[in-house]
């Protein structure tokens, strides 16, 4: 099976927060969502965007962890903290440049997006990308992502994506707002 990745097209987001509702539904998520949706320009317009773990190839969260509680799955997914290892120091919540890891005070435990590992390990799309009504969150093969890259190449020859704009290489690919700039109109 061709490897699939989470792919984000931020410009599509309609702010429905279905991704948050869906995240609570994934097995082992204890009905708590691990993702975020922000109003980009509150008081001005209705633009919103999801903030998701990008599953960094060299994740700051895992590097910062003194207890090796954050494991990286063979698929590249950066997993939620292991209950038996996490010491609740909260280093990772500070280390992550996007503020993804959340902290459960009661359990003294970090929890974060695990890319719905019990689904994605078998090639089944994560809950959030399954339900997202606007195709902001998609689950695509590398060749599909490549096609997107060609389609949204901007005049300046750059692919509006996680590189080189964001921190390091990520498993999740992101298309920043502005994807339609390169579109040729039909008529």
């Amino acid at each position: 099976m061709e490897k699939k990745r989470l792919y984000l097209e931020l410009e599509n987001c309609i702010g429905c927060r279905s991704c948050l509702a869906a995240c609570t539904q994934c097995g082992g998520h204890e009905e708590r969502n691990r993702n975020y949706v922000y109003d980009v320009n509150p008081l001005v317009n209705r633009q919103t965007m999801p903030l998701m773990c990008l599953h960094c190839v060299n994740p700051a969260c895992a590097r910062s962890c003194p207890a090796q509680a954050i494991q990286i799955h063979e698929t590249g997914a950066v997993l939620s903290a292991l209950v038996e290892k996490c010491i609740g120091c909260q280093n990772c919540t500070i280390a992550c440049p996007y503020g993804i890891p959340k902290f459960d005070e009661e359990q003294n435990l970090m929890y974060k997006c695990d890319l719905c590992i019990d689904r994605t390990k078998d090639g089944i799309p994560p809950m959030c990308a399954s339900v997202c009504p606007s195709n902001t969150l998609q689950w695509l093969s590398d060749s599909e992502i490549e096609a997107k890259q060609k389609q949204f190449n901007l005049d300046n020859g750059k692919w509006v994506t996680s590189l080189p704009y964001l921190e390091g290489e990520t498993n999740v690919k992101v298309n920043l707002p502005g994807i339609l700039q390169g579109t040729t109109k039909l008529f």
Binding site: I14, N45, R46, P133, T183, K185
Partner: peptide, 27 residues
Amino acid sequence: PTSMFRVWAVQERGGYLIVADPRETPI
């Protein structure tokens, strides 16, 4: 909401979207 992936796809193909509404809704 679940009509929206089809709506955006029209624009992605280079088609047009015209919306009449007193509010600037997400669409």
